[in-house]
Amino acid sequence: MSTTTTEVAGAAHDAAKAGMPQLDIATFPNQIFWLLVTLVTIYLILSRVALPRIGGTLANRKGTITADLAAAEELKQKAVAAEAAYNEALTNARSEAAKIIAAAKADIQADLNKAIASADAEIAAKAAESAGRIDEIRAGAMAAVETVAKDTAAELVGALGGTADASAISAAVTARLKG
């Protein structure tokens, strides 16, 4: 029985040798059997091991990229906020400094004004005092000049051999000085 099937199969094989091996029906069960074995094997390898692993890797990568982008966006926002805060602080510091400068200027001006005023007053007082002293000295000088003139006149009169009383000489000198 088995020899007959073998012979029949062999005959079919030989017949197909002349034409296309693709049409050799005797080899079909063999090809189909091994094809099914192969397909099941590939299916199991792919669905059990390879595809979940690759899918997981791709999802993981996508997640990482999304997270990284979100983190970058957050950091960018933070940087923008920090820049704004920095600018605000800078503006505040500038206005504060301007205020301090203005206050210092005002203080200095006030001190200066006060010092100038007191100095002016002092100068005025000193000038008035000096003027008084000058007047006094001038008056003293005038008096001295009169005395010296009277004495000189009396001495001159005595030296010239005249005699004159003091009051007449004094009146004459005073009259001359006025003239």
Partner: peptide, 10 residues
Amino acid sequence: PVQWYTITNV
């Protein structure tokens, strides 16, 4: 002969 189970070049 090529049986269904024969190990072939296929």
